[in-house]
Design a protein around this nucleic acid. Structure first.
Ligand SMILES: Nc1ncnc2c1ncn2[C@@H]1O[C@H](COP(=O)(O)OP(=O)(O)OP(=O)(O)O)[C@@H](O)[C@H]1O
Length: 732
DNA sequence: ACAGTCAATATTTTT
DNA sequence: TATTGACTGT
């Protein structure tokens, strides 16, 4: 294999074969490329069977891409290889071996919506009050427990003395019981149950340990405790573990990711080889410098070198918009300008934001100009109501124990079956140890359900059961058609005669196409696998390679991707960083890493924008510029829009200073909420509006505690750092 | 049982 | 803003 496409550090990594190996390096240094080459090299130079290689990626899209790249290097070898996300690997393992721990191979996966529905049933069964304790808080808590590998029993052992935990313990336990009896697993359970399986059945673990001589993990910095454990289990025998990552890009702490996994790799794995990559192949020097000027404000990180052969490149273009509409309009204009001048293609642009809600204004502006765009993420196709309904029918056919799906569709479309009827059915089912669907078979024996209602239930049962029987013989398309016809799902939407209903009908037909394509694509077609795949789809998976559109996505969704031109938008306090992170240092650090990730997605051109006002819940609110702006090296920024004076500013203060010395972060001192409060005193505070003799009006966004230098965003002259004892500034 | 209306109420990020 | 829950009348 040709290793010429690699620099010497990369080659060193690729040529490292045995033992634990960690590649740590900054963004765009070719970590993923190294991983890919290493696998190709194992096969070509060492004749390792593809079937003994496992590679874990962060998204399914990354998995597909990796397979393609490997095949480009060494031919069609990936068929027997296990390349996928943690979740899809676990599904595969549990389908095969889950029966040991009581899961048949037809188990279903619950997404967050299903999870919530199940929790709601548990709430009712336990008589808990949704108003006192929102379901969602328990949902997060259960997920948090699982990420930290705290089972319901373990939680009880630890906290049973605390009366405040009693409800939660009961709920957690019941929830797990119901998952089991429904033959369902939630996202976190896929990992947890696999670990449990391996613990309880060493011979099963041994099978996988022997099979996978070489284990690889991309984006290792965002693994959680469960994932860490799984990897440890799998690699324990051969100890050939190859992981790559970048601590500065860890952005999923809120989902249980533990940055220590990558930090402690050397300690955890005896004799680990650590390889650092320092050359960046993605971005211009200016972009790298800007990224570095931000991330260096995170304390306690090891400084990484990152250099590029590329030129300094264009300056970072900074624009302060009046509101989110103006921000969107600016972006659209810039895109049109760059395309018109022939600098870039429409597909070269990505707009990255902190929250999904921000896509709205951007979409409006793009629509006005008729520019093609694609929103990645947000409400997913498979999360739409009508799609989930159809899928719930399928789940129920595949797995008759799935009470959550049953409840979802028993009255969808309307069959005059309400809460009361379901309650009676549930009572009967519980009493006889049956699932709801099975209980329907004995509907005559159920107390209190008669006449029309009993008939409707029988009809429903016959539809689902009749189709379930045909599952093996018929194609998915045939099942689909039969379901649509018998259940009258589409017919009932047609009767509504609204645009919304028409849209839903289109989506359902679209789903049919997707299912049929899936069936063609797979060697072992099956609705079961289709259902799992749709549930485990990641946002990025919907990005097509040949996409001719401007891409819009959250910063999280942009992880691992790269674009010639990036717009990083909405750099405002309480938005980015998010308001929930404002009073917590570690959360703020994670936001800063997110900012670092966003900046480093850009190859040659980077725009940074924020708005002075923004509609939020329909309220027009004044916004304050993000603290991250004040952390950026101002000399790299070029202010767009109004005429700009030469930039004669000092370097940004170094990041070695702890954050708490920045008064902005002390909510007590922050006058953002009440800017007038401090107006009587002479002291400047963040949020104060000021007037400068030359630069005009602006707002203070940060104050350096030791030097008293102010960072001010001027309305017409960009961001400046000025010493108030020298500069002609007065408060307004 | 259900459709319609009104009010409250929430928004980070996602496999 | 847009969704969701509670309530009301049929
Ligand atoms: N030796 C090399 N020669 C030419 N191009 C390279 C080389 N190494 C990496 N690249 C290119 O640099 C870009 C970034 O590589 P890659 O995505 O593997 O980096 P990464 O470290 O995984 O980035 P991130 O941490 O941001 O996910 C890719 O376009 C890749 O093709």
């Amino acid at each position: 294999m040709n290793l010429n496409g690699l620099n010497s550090a990369q080659r060193d990594a690729v040529l490292s074969i045995d033992g634990p190996i960690l590649v740590v390096a900054g963004a765009g240094s070719g970590k993923t490329r190294v991983l890919t080459h290493r696998i190709a090299h194992l096969i070509e130079a060492y004749d390792i069977f593809p079937s003994s290689i496992m590679a874990i990626t962060f998204t399914n899209k990354a998995a597909t891409e990796m397979k393609n790249r490997i095949e480009q290097l060494v031919g069609p070898v990936t068929h027997q290889m296990w390349v996928g996300t943690f979740h899809s690997m676990c599904v595969r393992i549990l389908r095969r071996d889950g029966h040991h721990i009581g899961y048949a191979s037809d188990f279903v996966i619950y997404d967050t919506t299903d999870q919530k529905a199940l929790l709601k049933n548990c709430f009712k069964a336990l008589g808990l009050d949704e108003k006192k304790t929102p379901i969602q808080s328990f949902q997060y808590k259960i997920s948090g427990c699982k990420n930290d590998m705290m089972s319901a029993d373990a939680y009880e052992t630890n906290f049973h003395k605390d009366p405040r935990e009693r409800d939660f313990i009961k709920l957690y336990k019941l929830y797990q019981e119901k998952l089991k009896s429904n033959q369902a697993l939630d996202f976190d359970d896929l990992l947890i149950k696999t670990i449990e399986l391996f613990k309880a059945y060493p011979e099963v673990l041994a099978y996988y340990q022997n099979k996978f001589r070489y284990v690889h993990v991309d984006e290792y910095q965002d693994t959680n405790k469960a994932q860490y454990t799984l990897i440890r289990q799998l690699s324990a025998k051969h100890k050939n573990l190859f992981v790559v990552g970048d601590g500065d890009q860890s952005i999923y702490k809120w989902r249980g990711a533990d940055i220590r996994n990558i930090q402690d790799f050397e300690k955890d794995y005896q004799g680990a080889k650590i390889i650092k990559l320092e050359q960046n192949y993605r971005s211009s020097q200016n972009i790298l410098d800007l990224a570095n000027s931000v991330i260096k404000h995170n304390p306690g990180r090891r400084d990484k070198t990152l250099w590029t052969e590329a030129d300094a490149g264009e300056k970072i273009r900074y624009y302060q918009a009046y509101d989110e509409k103006d921000e969107a309009r600016f972006i659209v204009n810039q895109i049109r300008k760059e395309v018109r001048e022939g600098n870039f293609d429409q597909s070269d642009f990505a707009i990255l934001y902190r929250t999904n809600a921000q896509s709205r204004a951007l979409e409006d502006a793009l629509n006005i100009e008729g520019l093609p765009y694609k929103v990645v993420g947000g409400l997913k196709f498979y999360e739409r109501k009508e799609i989930k309904d159809v899928l719930a029918y399928f789940k129920l056919m595949v797995n008759p124990f799935d009470d959550v799906s049953f409840r979802r569709v028993i009255n969808e479309p309307k069959r005059s079956i309400g809460d009361k009827t379901i309650e009676k059915l549930q009572d009967y089912a519980t009493e006889h140890g049956l699932s709801l669907l099975r209980a329907c078979a004995n509907i005559d024996a159920v107390q209190g359900i008669t006449g029309k209602t009993a008939l409707a239930i029988r009809d429903f049962y016959n539809i689902v059961n009749g189709l379930a029987v045909r599952l093996d013989a018929a194609t998915s398309g045939e099942i689909f058609d039969a379901l649509i016809e018998q259940s009258e799902i589409i017919a009932s939407y047609e009767r509504e005669r609204t645009d919304e209903a028409d849209g839903r009908i289109d989506n359902i037909y679209e789903l049919k196409t997707v299912i049929e394509e899936f069936e063609k694509r797979q060697d072992s077609p099956g609705l079961r696998d289709f259902l799992a795949e749709t549930t485990l789809r990641s946002d990025q998976d919907s990005i097509e390679e040949a996409e001719q559109s401007i891409l819009l996505m959250t910063l999280h969704a942009s992880k691992g991707l790269e674009f010639p031109v990036v717009f990083l938008v909405g750099l405002e306090q309480n938005l980015f960083p998010s308001f929930r992170a404002m009073d917590d240092e570690t959360e703020l650090e994670e936001e800063r890493r997110l900012c670092y990730v966003g900046i480093t997605r850009a190859e040659s051109l980077l725009f940074i924008t924020h708005a002075k006002n923004r509609n939020h819940y329909g309220r027009f609110e004044p916004r304050m510029p993000s603290v991250f702006l004040s952390e950026m090296n101002q000399s790299l920024l070029e202010t767009m829009g109004e005429k700009s004076l030469g930039n004669t500013l000092k370097e940004s203060p170094s990041g070695t200073k702890p954050l708490k010395h920045n008064p902005y972060f002390n909510p007590v001192q922050s006058s953002y909420a009440a800017p007038e409060k401090s107006s009587s005193s002479d002291a400047f505070a963040p949020g104060d509006k000021v007037m400068h003799k030359v630069f005009g009006s602006g707002m203070i966004i940060a104050i350096d505690t030791s030097s008293k230098v102010l960072t001010i965003v001027f309305d017409a002259h960009g961001i400046k750092k000025l010493d108030p004892s020298i500069a002609p500034i007065k408060k307004l």
